[in-house]
Amino acid sequence: MGRLLEVKNLRTQFKTFDGIVKAVDGVSFYLDEKEIIGIVGESGCGKSVTQLSIMQLINRPGKIVGGEVWFEGKDLLKYKQHGPEMRSIRGGKIAMIFQEPMTSLNPVLTLGYQLAESLILHLKMSKEEARKRAIELLGMVGIPSPEDRIDDYPHQFSGGMRQRVMIAMALACNPKILIADEPTTSLDVTTQAQLLELMVDMVHKFNSSLILVTHNLGVVARYAQRIYIMYAGRIVEEGTCKEIFKRPRHPYTKGLLRSVPRLDVEGERLIPIEGLPPRLTDLPDQCAFLPRCPYKTEKCSTSPMPELRSVPGEGHKIRCYVDIPEVDYATV
């Protein structure tokens, strides 16, 4: 498995009237070929902005102020935002699925047209070829009688069906990487499961890699090989899926896992994480999780933001000073 994508020290900021919002503040992660990684965090922690930064889709007042995104031996951030190199990567090499299927399709164009568009743009197919391929793709994502539905407009499709179309669109040009930004958040639970299954299936079929951005721990637990936990624009814990779920070491991750309902423990009360995430305009110099941390020590409030450091376990790193006694969550 070769290294496919490596993000190094990515920093994206938004200039607002309240000050500079450090939405992404030094995020580094990598993705191997045919790998599925999960990026987890609560709303506003910078998950989506990280992904949009990789694609250079950040608009004013946002700005990528630093970092590198290495893909196929090139630093994508060196390319101009609207330049031809970046355009051929978007959709061609790296594709994206957004969280709102209801609004992610252009309401005045037929689905066939929108599906064919990227085929014509990137693979230089003729109109007929593109149409044929579009019908094929619609069939692959499980739309019944695709040759009839291809000339339909988005409003004639349900939310789940539209997200299926979005998956077909994203994978149309056989991209190396698929970024799914909370792909199932706005769908109901049964549709969610079907769609995730379909997406992972398709990713395997196309030999692509998948970055699954979500706040749903259940989703990543099932599909992701490695997990990154984000908090206030930074990665606070990373490791293999097994490590993170069995031996979470960062207090935030522990808090997250405690607040997930479990089927195997009866009558258990969920323990929420007290407090609110910090305002991204005035992040403290210390650990961003400090005010909410139940494990904080003297050292935490006097020392600067901790760096990511390795802890026992395969590739397991945490951004924390405290060594919390290991708790095996599988047995609690």
């Binding site: 978007r90 959709g91 992610s104």
Partner: peptide, 14 residues
């Protein structure tokens, strides 16, 4: 609208 962002994400020019 999201579909404009989605459009850009498939590499369509301005």
């Amino acid at each position: 609208n999201d579909y404009i962002l989605a459009q850009k994400a498939i590499g369509s020019s301005n």
